[in-house]
Structures are given as structure tokens and as C-alpha cells.
Design a protein around this nucleic acid. Structure first.
Lengths: 337, 337
DNA sequence: CGTAATCTCGAAAACGTTTTCATGACGTGG
DNA sequence: CCACGTCATGAAAACGTTTTCGAGATTACG
């Protein structure tokens, strides 16, 4: 037995149009037919076929989320916020990960295009070409943490520059001079901004060349661990380390703990993002709070608003402020150098 | 300009059937027409409408994943494994989270049913009724960590019982006697099994009543923190704590660190799951390794295999073995009581 | 009481594909 | 040279909905 609208109509002794009208409440239907239809729907266990619906209505009820990777806490949080908001609006989420290279990204976009009504893109590595490709698709797009180079999409960023600048300034104010930085991926927009914030603050303190204090990383715990080890070997040793994100900072904490180096007594460590793990790290991690979940939700809200708008909306460009969160992993510098 | 197969056919001067044949390579088409079609496809920027395709072919190309929550590292890892496998097979993933209660779960299933070709369900709180509801849907279902009460679905479990049993036995072998356990959610199948494993090992060591050593938790860091504090106040204090999962254990480590209690010297702490954070905790966390990512991928593989099978396949019931991973957070008991 | 307006509802078109069926061209074997 | 199979191709059906259109019934009003 197939669960189609025809079957329901047959059982209720009405036309399929009537069934549709009862279900969608578009037009009043006489009470007895309405009742018969509802009974038949129950008996058959009918639910409308979404494919048929979207074919006709040109909307799918789905929203796509493009991420580099779902395993990191940052993205997981973002996803959670997005999912919560999506459920609230009755949309479902279609996720697509691991787009470190352009080809898979384009392929994903193509595949997603007609399957969803809108797209949230959180791929800091994205370049102008990709962005343009995105923008010329059919669906509205919200980009998170992408460079501000096109105005065909909505953007939600947070203040990566100011976050690290504040963090660096805070450490400087606490007497630190040799502050190392572990960078994020070179191609990532947000990582670049964080780097610039660091340099700006260091220059403000009279350190114009920071090249000896900057280290390559890639936002992973693993990177924090290995680079942390390298930093330890330096002479003179830095008195503070700023990691490009919390995951990386946790890797640093891990290697310091293994070497028996006290944090923050001997060295201060700071992260970025304030993922949930930051406040459960040992010691608890000084970081820059980013309302990750809220941003995920905001992206979805933006999309839905745009989809429901009757008239074209101007593209917005929102920047979330960030906040310094000082915890146990940083302290005034004790170095008398 | 609409990007339909008609438009392509019109430009190429052929029928829509020919376009379809060229694209799907079902039947040979003369070389010149083939070329014209391909050019027209490019010119129009045509991609087939998935809704129309699935309406006809009765398959959507999507796979659904039901999770309680995407923010935890465990689920994030699972999702990553699933996503990787799905991409390999050309399926996309549709995720649905936060199904702590039955109603939203049913609603999600209904909504997902015709949108996907198969379902991965990781909801340890699921009960028999829900499971039956799932099984009678149209799509094949793979359940992860659910009770073994129906055989209408595929199941992938891992050995929750044996994992905690081994962990407990290991601590006992290291001289620990007062071993506390922080439970998982009461309704969760896996948490229940872990509890049983603990009790079995304790009974094996002659401790028949463990009620004074068991504490309620809910798999969160927060729970680990608060319950950890409670355990600290006990007299005599337990010499080891097994948390129902790593997240909870990390919460315990956090509170111990705050109270200045040395791990593992004064107290041993162990977790379960071996999430990536476990090896970056300070100290690194003794845990039970579960191949989370592999399990996520395996679930997808199972679904795809079933979908592609020509003939009905028997339902399988796979149990992954788990492995004790001893790290720094546990040590022989120094208590001379 | 007649006509116009309102209301309920069914028939049918439309959405964009894939696939079946039919047709005409062509080559081949007897 | 004719019949027959093979081959490329187009016309049309089908998938399951929503929505338009029109018809018939009912109400409202003069």
C-alpha cells in the first residue's frame, strides 16, 4: 500500500485537491469531509512527499552548513547553535565538511545548491573566487569569518584582530615582554587577523620585529604540543604564549605539564574562542570569548529572515565584539630580566 | 533564464530524453549530439533538480543522523566519521539533534523519513516503543548503542560493560579499594551497561554493595565538576574515580586541580570513550578507547551496503571491542588503609 | 421569486526529471 | 531484393504534490 495523497483521497471519498486543502488549511473545507480526510490520513499514515512539494514550491525546507571539519569543538558549537535555531524555524540542516581544497568546496556547493534554501559558510580559507561562485548561486548565503571583499552575501564576523590585540596588551600590561604567538593556518582569514592584532599590540609596546616570536601552527592540539616544545627550547624563553585558538593552547598546556613547567608561575598561556573546554582545562584557560553558539544561531536566523522577506533585503555585515576572559593560565610576569 | 533540462534540450536542438541519456550515460548517443548537449549544459550551467530526480527514482541521496547533541566531542567525532564515509559514497548528511524527549524524536523521524534513504540513530535513551517506530519506517536504520531488543534494524554497539569492568579491575589490581563511579544518564543504555561493568568488577573484588560509591551524573563536564567536589568531601575519601565518560572525567580533573589535589598521586581518575581531549588533558587521561570515528563510518557503510544490495540482507549486530588506555591520571594506590 | 454573489469542491495543469514505448533509418543475411 | 533485427531518437507517461480554473450548489438581496 502506498502512502500517497491519492490513497488518502480514495479512502476519504474526496479529490486529492481536498486532501491538500485540509492538510494545508488554505481554504475552508466542510466539516464532515475534513473529518473523513483526517481519519484517512491517520489510517494510511500519510505524510506528504517532500520531493514532490519542493518540486512545486521551489523550496526544500533545508539549510546547508559548510564547515572545514565537524570534530573540533568550535565547529561543533557552531553547529549546535545553528541546529537549535533551525529546529525553531522548522528547517532541517544539511551539513558538509572537509573543504580544505577548492575542488571539493565547489562540488559541495553544486550538490547542495538545489537541495537547500540557503547556505551558511564557515570556511575561513575561502578565497575571492570561491566567494564569487557562492554568491552567484540561487540561494542566499551567510558567510562567517570570511574576508570582506564582496557584498553579494551576508557576513557575520567577530573581531579577531581586536581579540588578540587586547590579549597581547593585557599580557604586556602584566609585565610580559617576550610573548610568543602560535599562528593559525596561513590561508585562513581569521588566523591572519589574529596575527595582525598581535603584531599591532607588540608594536605598540615598542617591539617592531616579532618574527622570532611567531610560530606556525594550524589550530590543532597537536600543533600546540609540538610548537610548545619548540618554544620551551628557546633561550631566553618567552614568558607567555598566545595560541591562535584554544585547541592549540590546550596542546601547549599539555606539553608544559609533561615537562613539569608550572602554568602560570613559569609561563603564561592564552587561547582564543573560549570553547567549553577552556574553562575545564588544568589550569583553566585565559581566552577570548566568542559567542560561538550565538553566531551559529544568528547565521540561521539571518537566512530565514531573508527567505521569508517579501522584498529584497540589503546585505548586512555584522561584527560581533569579543571579550577577554582571564582565568588561571595567565599571571603577571615574574621574570626580572 | 531557468536552468532546466528543457532549456538545455532547446539549445542543443534535441529532445529532453536525449539530454538525460547523455548525462546519465544510460544509452549511447551519436557523437555530435552528445557534444552539443554537453556544450549546452555548460552554457546554461545546468544541474539536474534533485527533487525531480528523487520523486521519480525514489531515492534522495541523503542519509540522516540522529544525535542527542552535536556539541560534545564524542558526537562530533562520530559525525566526522559518518561524514567522511558519506562523502566517499556520494551521499550527503542530514543531521538532527537534541532528541532528549520522545516527541521531538518522533517528529524528527517523520520529517526525515522521506528526505533520506537511510538513518543512523545514536540515541542511547531510546526506548523500545521508539525503536519499533523507527523500524517500521521505510528506510533502513542503523542504531548505535541501543538496547538489543528488536531485530528489525542493524545495530552497532561497543562493549560498554567490558570497558568499565576492565577499567575497574585494573584499578583494583593496582591496590585501589574505594573506587567511586560517576554514572551517566539513567535512561541511557550505554550508561547502564557501564554501571553494570563497574558493579561486576567490584563484586568480583568482594564489594557487593557499591551504593555508597555511586554518584549521579549526566555525561557533562559540569557534572564531573560538581560531583567531584562531593566526592572530595567524603571520609574516607575514595582513592580513585571512574567517570562515565571522558567529559565528566575532565570535569573531575578540573575540580581536583582547583583544590590542589594531585592526580594521580592523591587520587586516580579515569574516563571512558577516549575522545581526542583525553590525551591532552592535564594530566593525560586514562580511558577506554572506543573507535568512535570508525563506528560513525561503519554505520554509514552499513547503510549504503544495504541500500545497494539487490536482495534483502539479514540484520547484523556488531559489537566493537574496546581497549584500556592507561595514561597519567591513574597510578597504583598509595593509601595504606 | 429571480439574479447575483459566495462558497465548496473536483478536474486538470504544472513542477523537472527518468524511462518506456514507438518510429524511422539503417545494415545484414538469406 | 525483401524481411528482419539493431540502433538512435523523440513523444509521452509517470512520480506526488499544490494550485488554478471552472462548475455546481447555496446563500443573499432586491
Amino acid at each position: 500500500m502506498d502512502r500517497t495523497i491519492r490513497e488518502v483521497a480514495r479512502r476519504a471519498g474526496v479529490s486529492i485537491a481536498t486532501v491538500s486543502r485540509v492538510l494545508n488549511k488554505t481554504v475552508p473545507v466542510s466539516e464532515d469531509k475534513r473529518k473523513r480526510v483526517l481519519e484517512a490520513v491517520d489510517a494510511v499514515g500519510y505524510t506528504p512527499n517532500p520531493a514532490a512539494q519542493s518540486l512545486l514550491k521551489k523550496e526544500t525546507g533545508g539549510l546547508g552548513v559548510l564547515l572545514p571539519y565537524a570534530g573540533e569543538e568550535f565547529f561543533a558549537e557552531l553547529l549546535t547553535g545553528a541546529d537549535l535555531a533551525a529546529q525553531e524555524y522548522g528547517y532541517y540542516l544539511l551539513i558538509c565538511t572537509s573543504h580544505r581544497d577548492d575542488k571539493t568546496l565547489q562540488a559541495s556547493i553544486r550538490g547542495l545548491d538545489k537541495r537547500v534554501d540557503g547556505l551558511v559558510v564557515m570556511v575561513p580559507e575561502i578565497n575571492a573566487k570561491e566567494l564569487a561562485y557562492l554568491a552567484k548561486g540561487e540561494d542566499p548565503v551567510v558567510c562567517i569569518n570570511t574576508p570582506l571583499s564582496t557584498d553579494a552575501v551576508d557576513r557575520i564576523n567577530f573581531d579577531n584582530f581586536e581579540g588578540v590585540r587586547k590579549m597581547t596588551a593585557y599580557l604586556i600590561a602584566n609585565g610580559h615582554e617576550r610573548i610568543a604567538l602560535i599562528r593559525g593556518p596561513e590561508r585562513a582569514h581569521d588566523a591572519q587577523k589574529r596575527l595582525e592584532g598581535y603584531r599591532a599590540a607588540m608594536q605598540g609596546a615598542g617591539v617592531s620585529d616579532t618574527s622570532m616570536l611567531e610560530f606556525n601552527g594550524d589550530y590543532t592540539k597537536q600543533a600546540g604540543y609540538t610548537v610548545g616544545e619548540k618554544i620551551l627550547a628557546l633561550d631566553p624563553r618567552p614568558t607567555a604564549i598566545i595560541a591562535a585558538n584554544d585547541y592549540c593552547a590546550i596542546g601547549v598546556l599539555s606539553v608544559l605539564h609533561e615537562h613539569g613547567i608550572a602554568v602560570p608561575e613559569e609561563i603564561s598561556v592564552a587561547g582564543f574562542d573560549d570553547v567549553p573546554s577552556a574553562q575545564y582545562a588544568a589550569p583553566t584557560l585565559t581566552s577570548v570569548r566568542v559567542p560561538i553558539r550565538e553566531i551559529g544561531a544568528a547565521a540561521i536566523r539571518r537566512l530565514v529572515t531573508r527567505l521569508r522577506a517579501k522584498h529584497p533585503m540589503p546585505h548586512e555585515d555584522q561584527v560581533y565584539p569579543v571579550e577577554l576572559v582571564v582565568r588561571q593560565s595567565t599571571a603577571p610576569c615574574k621574570d626580572e630580566a
